[in-house]
Design a protein around this nucleic acid. Structure first.
Lengths: 342, 342
DNA sequence: AGATACGCCGAAAACGTTTTCGTGTTGAAA
DNA sequence: TTTCAACACGAAAACGTTTTCGGCGTATCT
């Protein structure tokens, strides 16, 4: 078991100073070619690699990005991580992932843990509980310490930082409009509680689409479901009443639940009921019928967020940071037409 | 923008030495109560938190676990991460995730990057390319430097380290046996190339089940598909010949592809074709019909791997490490019966 | 009174780097 | 021969901690 070799050991072995070794390895012109080559050869032989921790301490930067998300077992969030990871790596950054499990406390703990020197900046999406409590002190804390934060998807306007989102309202608007154009007249919206930021926006888009097409909003057709069971029950009621011929579900799980419910009631999808889901994921691609979705492009969100954060980090370096202007990038969505609409 | 406060700053402010501050904050009995309380109050006021990097450098350990997986946009791997994260957090460890994207080179680069002091140990699953090349020098490298490695799921016997796997052979055996018990006689196996370690084992289990039930193995019923398109084509051929009434697919995607193919050919699942998939994930739960699966319990795999690694790390601490015995934990699988079998 | 003990605190080393500055040697120019 | 620049290298500080050791002042014991 040969431990990692350090500059000091090389120096001692070669009977030169640590400085000489360091300079040699960094090809400093201060060092004679003879010494330089000798040191380099020795270092290569012993497979010397500089210690990241020591570098981090010295440079006061870690080249690491912290990502905090509510859940990783969630196709959307994994795609975001995937996107973050790709551009982070491209720029020589590592990624550390922490999960809040939708819990405020865990979100706070994780942030504090990472904020103490472990990372250079954050990319995060708020937990449900945080959105509910509207308590963002932990985020303001790290920002005020000069650590850049980029929020994505589940954001809040109460925090000033860079953000990347999709235009939830517009996306919902387009989805509902599509249903209307296809001749649907009684369109339900199945969403989550309003305190989840995206839920509210999607509801707004739904309403606007109806209004623009001169369809009256029927509050009974707006279902706020906490889980799939509730979703199923509520939708079943509406279907029994023959009250709907189209539905926009706020996520894939709800959409597939709705389709299954309809099937069980001998209601054909898409003939009698057209379904569109937010969040394009695996399920929509493999459900029967395949589901028309609003694609969120998590990869691109992740890539954009990472790029914004890294720009912020490198800009800081050059201390030009009078440009304290935060920006919000909007990632375009698009409707992926599949078999659950016609 | 108030930068994080350090011991040095507190010391200067309070006109004591750095040592005194450090000791006060760690409740050392060396320090008088008066000084101690004064320092603690001041530290609390300025929200002092020790710098992790400095601690890592001093203690030569980072309290961080490195996880390298082939893909994160994959339900199984995300559940594993989720499991790792939960027990890591419980023991005060962070998790940094790197993706190999099934590429050997990226796997090597990521490992070398993390191995230089960034983490205390690895949890990893081999990329396809690595399994194909059978080049494990990068893993042996870190192990020989005294860094513990735990491999899970996609492992190799050529590396000596702790491992956590499922009994792929046994699981396949049980799945096929179940099909046979349900009266299926012509059972196909749809798998991947044999160099993927789990592929080989599952094939073995399939063969053994047939043999134990006195059914001759028909090589034509063993399909090695590189992707879903190939899977579809091959299965379609078999179905046209009426050659099969049951199938074990090595993953969910293949299973759902097979079901869709059958549906299109007016072949009823499960009546005319029973389907079982390896890897219980989202798709199986929401496909139509829902799919009977071999559950892999990624969460538990992750938890077990994390526990093994942490045990290894803390054991090292006490330098009792004569126990250089590596163990392999086998996570039990179970068949989740759904609607694709009867 | 002198020796001893103890309470309280600071200096310094260590972790592994990078970098600035200083210093000794050499050779050439004056 | 003196002066000076160029060259090659080393010492030391710095990043932020923890911890060992030593020291000083006061109180206690003989």
């Amino acid at each position: 078991m040969k431990r990692k070799v350090t500059l000091k050991q090389i120096a001692k072995e070669l009977d030169v100073s640590i400085s000489t070794v360091s300079k040699s390895l960094r090809d400093s012109p201060e060092i004679s070619e003879e010494t330089r080559l000798k040191v380099q050869a020795f270092a290569k032989l012993y497979n010397y690699k500089p210690n990241n921790i020591a570098l981090s301490l010295k440079n006061r930067k870690t080249k690491t990005i912290g990502v905090i998300i509510p859940e990783i077992v969630h196709h959307f969030f994994s795609t975001v991580i995937s996107g973050v990871e790709s551009v982070a790596n491209e720029y020589g950054y590592s990624v550390v992932v922490c999960l809040s499990n939708e819990s405020f406390d865990k979100e706070v703990i994780n942030m504090e843990m990472l904020a103490n020197g472990s990372i250079d900046g954050f990319i995060m999406s708020l937990s449900k509980e945080t959105q509910f409590k509207k308590d963002f002190h932990h985020i303001n804390e790290v920002i005020s310490q000069g650590m850049p934060v980029v929020m994505f998807d589940r954001i809040t306007n109460e925090i000033f930082c860079d953000k990347v989102i999709i235009d939830d309202k517009q996306a919902a608007y387009e989805a509902v409009s599509y249903l209307i154009e296809k001749g649907r007249k009684q369109i339900a919206l199945v969403t989550t509680a309003d305190y989840v930021s995206v839920g509210k926006l999607r509801t707004d888009g739904y309403m606007k689409a109806l209004a623009d097409h001169d369809i009256a909003v029927n509050e009974k057709l707006i279902i706020r479901a906490d889980d799939e069971i509730q979703c199923k029950q509520e939708v079943q009621k509406l279907l029994e009443q023959g009250a709907i011929d189209g539905v926009l579900a706020v996520n894939e799980l709800y959409a597939v639940t709705i389709i299954k419910t309809a099937n069980k009631m001998q209601i054909a999808v898409p003939e009698q009921l057209a379904v569109i889901a937010f969040t394009d994921g695996i399920i929509s691609q493999y459900a029967t019928p395949t589901i028309t979705t609003v694609s969120q492009n998590g990869i691109k969100m992740g890539q954009t967020a990472a790029k914004m954060l890294i720009d912020r980090l490198e800009e800081e370096e050059t201390e030009y940071s009078t440009a304290e202007q935060y920006t919000t990038e909007v990632i375009e969505t698009n409707l992926i037409i599949r078999d659950s609409t016609n």
